[in-house]
Design a protein around this nucleic acid. Sequence first.
DNA 1: TTTCGAATTGACGTTAACGTCAACGTTAAG
DNA 2: CTTAACGTTGACGTTAACGTCAATTCGAAA
Lengths: 136, 136
Amino acid sequence: MPRDAVITYSIKELASDFMVTARTLRHYEEQGLLSPGRQGQNRVYTIKDRARLSWILRGKRVGFSLTEIGDMLDLYNLGDGRETQVAVTKKLCRDRIDALQRQMKDIKDTIEELEGFCEEVDSLVKKKNGEWIIDG
Amino acid sequence: MPRDAVITYSIKELASDFMVTARTLRHYEEQGLLSPGRQGQNRVYTIKDRARLSWILRGKRVGFSLTEIGDMLDLYNLGDGRETQVAVTKKLCRDRIDALQRQMKDIKDTIEELEGFCEEVDSLVKKKNGEWIIDG
DNA sequence: TTTCGAATTGACGTTAACGTCAACGTTAAG
DNA sequence: CTTAACGTTGACGTTAACGTCAATTCGAAA
């Protein structure tokens, strides 16, 4: 019987929802990336924490370090009415975007090279068909 | 007065050409990614080593580990007339490509989110112009 | 009440990709 | 000959991002 109708999650729930371990969530908290509430001694995660975690994990997938992700999350806390360093913020954003675009190009090139390599293998197989040994 | 007209590079030359340290090249050799010739005790790198190094570094840029890069380089040593596991090879290639394409999507999404964020900041600045403090 | 499951806080272990340092050999110049 | 620049091989240090384990605590179920 919930006192308030606020949806929350235990550490294990949130962890398994995102396919990470509880240790990971605690680690993110140690690094200041998450700051869930407490219910006594236990951590309680809200929908906002879910959103943050989602961001963190995508940041990771695209190659950011936790520190960088922390910086980016801080940027999201702009607009809170306090005086903020907008110029710095925008520069960080732009730098990120530039880096990501360079990374995309690198990946594109690599994909093309890999595809070319696949074709090479294909033609080799067609040419020397029968001479190749394909086993485990 | 070169005995042979083969272009070679010292470890420092190759390193500075690619903006890495000599230690890095030795490390790659320890991991079996490079295997330069020797001139007495010293390493001599050829144009082929340059090509391999170039591959290695792009692999790194797109987020591969050295071990993975080693595997990929091994794939390039196909077609040497020996019996080879073509099916396995092609699967590895395809897996790589798939992973890279997923990574591209992630990056694209992130770029879009960052751009959206930038615009948010812009509009905030326009709206509350004057109230923001932009200093160092 | 005992026991179980799920949580907590330390605190040390691990892997990857080098950095860094020590101790040493080899030319080439002054 | 001495110094300098460049090379070599160990071998230990470092950072990041957790893994892993021990010792506890707490609330609920049997």
